[in-house]
Design a protein around this nucleic acid. Structure first.
Lengths: 112, 112
DNA sequence: CTACATATGTAGCCGTGTTACCTATGTCGC
DNA sequence: GCGACATAGGTAACACGGCTACATATGTAG
């Protein structure tokens, strides 16, 4: 998968990964890899700065903990993050609908 | 629509816009605007450089003409461009499938 | 004691879309 | 005639954000 295609959609992915409960960065990477059958294998240099951006924007909240002698930063969705995720899911649907239509040549399931 | 989300998909859009026959840049913009019910209104500063990139890569071929006293650069798909469009459509389907799955929470219509 | 998985992070690069300009011609309204 | 606008093409500088490469540290397996 072209990696640069992710641009603008990573935040939604990260928020979605935290939807099922708090996770630390490393676990987010694994979670996305599993959910996508290995096709989304994002490097730490992508994930960690992105999580910090989300935290600064107040969409997630991070907290340090120590598990098995290792430092972890666990992130959880804030109320604003939940709302943001909702909006981003709607954006994603609109985005795919618009591009799929413009791309043509492929049947697009009937839209509401 | 968040404009930056386009990143990585613009080429496919442009190739698709030329699929129905040769067009010049300005017409491509209008074509995309119409096909998307006004939601894709791309500035010339996005389209013209992108068309030149595609031409340099040999996916489209441009030719000057004069219509109504105005200079036009008509672009048409090359054989390589047709193949590239095919590949990009497949990429798009895979991309949306992967992201939609990872994003969860939204049903993804059954694919062929 | 080496290697690897786990875990977090930063600096700098690069692609690419945007913003803000510029040029030129034809047409319509005044 | 002249201004405004649609048509038509273009460039330079910027900004955003994901990637590459690197640095650090601990636990576990060989």
């Amino acid at each position: 998968m072209r990696a640069e295609a992710l641009k603008g959609h990573l935040d939604a992915l990260l928020l979605a990964a935290l939807e099922g409960g708090p996770r630390h960065g490393y676990a987010v990477i694994e979670s996305l890899r599993e959910r996508s059958a290995g096709r989304l294998d994002l490097p730490t240099g992508t994930i960690y700065p992105a999580l910090r951006r989300l935290e600064q924007r107040g969409l997630i909240a991070g907290e340090w903990s120590v598990v098995g002698g290792r430092q972890r930063r666990e992130y959880r969705l804030t109320a604003a993050g939940v709302r943001a995720l909702e909006g981003k899911r709607a954006d994603w649907l609109e985005f795919t609908a618009v591009i799929s239509t413009a791309l043509g040549g492929e049947p697009w399931p009937a839209r509401a």
